[in-house]
Amino acid sequence: AVSDRLIGRKSVVMEAISPQNSGLVKVDGETWRATSGTVLDVGEEVSVKAIEGVKLVVEKLE
């Protein structure tokens, strides 16, 4: 599936994300709604860990 190619990809937070609120990330020039178990600020680099419905699950790059 097209979405499977996103797992493991680097992306950049475009709208802040917290455990309570989804935000936005940009992956390969496309904007996606995303969630995370931690707070992520605009501009942080993250990695796509999973896809749940139409949202990406991301975490901060170490």
Rank of each mutant, 00 (worst) to 15 (best):
A1H: 13
A1N: 13
A1L: 12
A1P: 11
V2E: 10
V2K: 11
S3F: 13
S3H: 13
D4P: 08
D4G: 09
D4H: 15
R5D: 10
R5V: 07
L6P: 01
L6F: 08
L6T: 03
L6D: 05
I7T: 06
I7F: 05
I7S: 04
I7D: 05
I7G: 03
I7V: 09
G8V: 05
R9P: 05
R9N: 08
R9C: 12
K10T: 14
K10P: 13
K10N: 09
S11C: 15
S11P: 08
S11L: 09
S11N: 04
V12M: 08
V13C: 06
V13F: 00
E15H: 07
E15I: 11
E15P: 00
A16Y: 08
A16S: 09
A16L: 09
I17M: 04
I17P: 02
I17C: 06
I17E: 00
S18G: 09
S18Q: 04
S18T: 13
S18P: 01
S18L: 05
S18N: 08
P19G: 06
Q20C: 15
N21Q: 14
N21F: 11
N21I: 12
N21D: 07
S22N: 09
S22R: 02
S22P: 14
G23K: 00
G23P: 00
G23C: 04
G23I: 02
L24Y: 11
L24P: 01
V25D: 01
V25C: 06
V25R: 00
K26E: 11
K26Y: 14
K26S: 13
V27E: 00
V27Q: 02
D28G: 08
D28T: 02
G29C: 11
G29W: 04
G29F: 05
E30H: 10
E30A: 09
E30N: 08
T31M: 13
T31E: 09
T31Q: 07
W32L: 04
W32D: 01
W32I: 04
W32E: 01
W32K: 02
R33M: 14
R33Q: 14
R33K: 11
A34W: 02
A34L: 00
T35L: 07
T35G: 05
T35V: 14
T35Y: 06
S36M: 00
S36W: 03
S36H: 01
S36T: 02
S36R: 00
S36A: 11
S36G: 05
G37N: 15
G37C: 14
G37Q: 13
G37V: 11
T38H: 13
T38M: 13
T38C: 12
V39M: 11
V39P: 11
V39R: 11
L40F: 08
L40A: 04
D41M: 13
D41L: 13
D41H: 13
D41R: 13
D41K: 13
D41S: 12
V42E: 06
G43F: 04
G43W: 04
E44L: 08
E44M: 11
E44T: 12
E45I: 15
E45L: 14
E45T: 13
E45A: 09
V46G: 04
V46I: 04
V46F: 00
V46Q: 03
V46W: 00
S47N: 09
S47I: 15
V48K: 00
V48E: 02
K49D: 03
K49N: 06
K49M: 13
K49W: 07
A50Q: 06
A50G: 11
I51C: 06
I51F: 07
E52F: 10
E52W: 11
E52Y: 09
E52T: 08
E52M: 12
E52Q: 11
E52L: 12
G53M: 03
G53C: 04
G53V: 03
V54G: 15
V54I: 12
V54Y: 14
K55Y: 15
K55A: 13
K55C: 15
K55H: 15
K55Q: 15
K55V: 15
K55L: 15
K55W: 15
L56K: 01
L56T: 02
L56M: 05
L56S: 03
L56R: 01
L56E: 00
V57E: 05
V57I: 11
V58P: 01
V58I: 03
V58C: 03
E59A: 10
E59M: 09
E59Y: 06
K60F: 04
K60A: 08
L61V: 10
L61H: 08
L61Y: 12
E62S: 13
E62K: 11
E62R: 10
